[in-house]
């Protein structure tokens, strides 16, 4: 899965940059909350992801649980981006 691991690496780079964290220290199981990313940081991450991959990420900060996207861990964010790139709902 070369393409998807490339996607993962690009997503991880975005998350690591936002968290001021070494990308090498992030695993799929790392939670976004544990990286100290708040709701503003999340908005910046979604902006960076949309710019990087030229996709639209459906997410409303008022209803995070109702959104189609799981932003709880590094792994779920990577999976969601991959699904959006495949043209599926997140």
């Amino acid at each position: 899965m070369g393409a998807s691991s490339d996607t993962d690496q690009r997503v991880i780079a975005i998350l690591a940059a936002q968290a001021l964290h070494d990308p090498a220290g992030l695993t799929r199981r790392t939670s976004i909350e544990s990286l100290g990313i708040d709701s503003m940081g999340l908005a910046e991450i979604l902006f960076a992801i949309e710019e990087e991959f030229d996709i639209a990420v459906p997410f409303n900060a008022n209803t995070p649980e109702a959104g189609a996207i799981d932003l709880s861990t590094v792994g779920t964010v990577c999976d969601a981006v991959r699904r959006l790139l495949d043209g599926h709902p997140a």
Partner: peptide, 20 residues
């Protein structure tokens, strides 16, 4: 829109279904 706090379907203050 970029701040992701706008509602796409209506303003429902104090309602459990409010979304922006």
């Amino acid at each position: 829109e970029a701040l992701r706090v706008l509602s796409p379907d209506g303003c429902r203050p104090f309602c459990a279904t409010r979304n922006g």
